[in-house]
Every structure is written in C-alpha cells, then in structure tokens.
C-alpha cells in the first residue's frame, strides 16, 4: 500500500560551494546523504517514504553545471544542471542532436522539465528514462567528480540495474558529453505512453542511423530500448542485422523481431510483458523505417 506523506520528511539542505566540498561531504555521509539537482525524482521518493536521507545536497549552483556548449570537433557538453526544456529548445541541440531534443521534450510536463535534467535522468537509472536512449546511441559519457578528482564514465556499461549505476559515494556528475554525431545521421525517439503526452514510457525506442562504408549493408544503426529490461537495453542482434544485410522492409522487420527477442520486460501497472514485447517489435520497426527513409 502506498502511504505518501503530506510533506517531505525531515532532512538538512546542504549547498556546497565547491565540487571538492560536495564530493567530500557525500563520501563522508555515504549512507545518509543524497545529491539532487531538479529533485523531481528525489522529492517524490522521499515523500513516498522510499528514501529517508538525512542530507540533501544541492549541487546545481556549482561551476559549469548550467551551461550547454557545442564544439564542432568534440561534440556537445551539457552541464548537469541544464534542464530538459533548455535542451529541448537549444538551437545547437536541435541543429546537431535533434533526437535528444525530441527525447527531452517527451519527458513529463513543461513544469517538470523546468526542473528535470538529463544528468538526473541518467543517474536515476530508471529503465524508463526517456533521454538515456539518446545518450547511449550517440555513445555518450559522463564527467564525474569524485573524491579522487575528475574522471569520465562511458554510458555503455554505466547501468547496473534499476536505480543502480557505476557511481560511487562522493561522485558528482557534472556534465553529459555526446560526441559528434556520425555524418548524415538521423534519429527517432518513439515513446508509447498511456495517454498522448506526459506519461512514463510503457516502452520507448531510440534509433539512430547513418551511412557507413564499412558495413556490408552500407549503413549502421544504434538502437536503445526503454522499459523493457532492468537497464536501458541495446538490442545488439538487431543492430547487427541492419549492419550486415542489405536493408529492405523485410530486413527491418527481421531486426525488429530481434529487438523483441532481446527484450525481457515485466508485467507492471503500466503494461504487460506481452504487450511490451510486441510494441518493441512494432515501434522498432517504425523507428528504424523512418530513420532509414531519411538517410537513404
């Protein structure tokens, strides 16, 4: 039985002045401190009584957290406190990573997107995270400040399970990096919710495709699936089919079937495993076909 409380439980609000201070505090209170930026997940879980931290550490005031920058050689850097609306509206993101803008725009409501961040979406490691797929198909990574200083964490391998990641006590994600997209790439995010806008994904399909002279098919696709496994799922077999076989409608259908086979969803209040698997097939097919139509 859900017993949400009228308000938030008691905690102390901590606002560190430097990253070093933040990491030290978080490491020292590894059991009872939690980092937050937008708070859209943290507050809800605390109000529901799932999380009971004594300290909430607000890191969004730290240097560099609020900027978006695009470098034509290195790609995109999104500060960890940049909100989803800024991403969805950013001219540079829309120009070079429209897929990411699309995914960011699909999150919840405008008001929540004013607070929610891509870094937060990634760190929460919900299998349903809308923007995680974009991060993965672009081969993104995170800048992480820990007690030992800065390091990079690739998103590939970052997710360990629902809510579980490679992050350690004291770690503060400061930015999300996306490398330059492959030349001529096109992408698509299809989110299936229960109503038109604002729902969590029953499933989500992110697809990115581009011409690639090194593959037998002449193309390469990256696909990521949301809400169909304990972690955001890359259906490798499907990607392989699209790289190896000359692309036709039938090959796209075959790849979509492979994506369905890879998915291991559960039954929950948002949808059944059976439906989710079928939707992985149908929407992977749709997403790949649309991308294929744009890159041929």
């Amino acid at each position: 039985m859900l017993t949400a409380h009228p308000g938030l439980p008691e905690f102390d609000y901590i606002k560190p002045k430097t990253l070093a201070e933040a990491s030290a505090f978080l490491a020292e209170h590894s059991k009872d401190a939690r980092i937050f930026v937008g708070g859209t997940d943290v507050f809800v879980r605390m109000r529901d009584g799932f999380w009971k931290e004594k300290y909430l550490v607000d890191v969004k005031g730290l240097e560099g957290m609020k900027s978006v920058s695009f470098d034509p050689r290195a790609g995109l850097t999104i500060g960890a406190a940049v909100n989803m609306n800024q991403i969805a509206e950013s001219a540079e993101v829309k120009a070079h990573y429209p897929l990411l803008a699309e995914a960011a725009h699909s999150v919840a409501s405008f008001q929540l997107r004013s607070r929610a961040t891509i870094a937060g979406n990634i760190c929460n490691a919900s299998p349903a995270g809308d923007t995680i797929g974009a991060g993965m198909v672009f081969g993104g990574s995170l800048s992480v400040h820990g007690v030992g200083g800065f390091r990079r964490e690739p998103l590939d391998g970052f997710f360990l399970g629902p809510g579980r990641t490679q992050l350690q006590a004291g770690d503060v994600v400061t930015a999300v990096h996306l490398p330059l997209p492959p030349k001529g790439a096109a992408g698509k995010y299809i989110k299936l919710g229960r109503n038109n806008i604002g729902d969590l994904a029953i499933i989500g399909v992110t697809a990115l495709g581009w011409r690639d002279g090194e593959t037998p098919s002449g193309y390469r696709f990256r696909i990521a699936l949301a809400s169909v496994a304990p972690v955001p799922l890359v259906p490798v077999a499907a990607e392989k089919i699209l790289a190896e076989k000359p692309i036709t409608d039938a090959v796209i259908a075959e790849a979509a079937n492979a994506a369905m086979e890879a998915a291991t969803p559960i039954d929950d209040v948002r949808g059944s495993a059976r439906y989710r698997k079928l939707m992985v097939r149908n929407l992977t097919k749709q997403a790949v076909a649309e991308v294929w139509g744009r890159i041929q």
Binding site: F43, R47, Q111, R115
Partner: peptide, 25 residues
C-alpha cells in the same frame, strides 16, 4: 504534492515550475 497536477504552478525566475517540487530554500 507530487508534481503531477500543476495546480501549484508558479513562475520561478520566469519559468513555470511546480512549486511542490521546489524547496523553499
């Protein structure tokens, strides 16, 4: 009180937010 209904929406530095999802501090 969970950021879902929008009845508490205010402008925060010009941006619409759910005020139930922002700490007073």
């Amino acid at each position: 009180a969970a950021g879902e209904c929008g009845a508490c929406t205010v402008l925060f530095n010009g941006e619409a937010v759910n005020s139930c999802m922002v700490l007073a501090v």
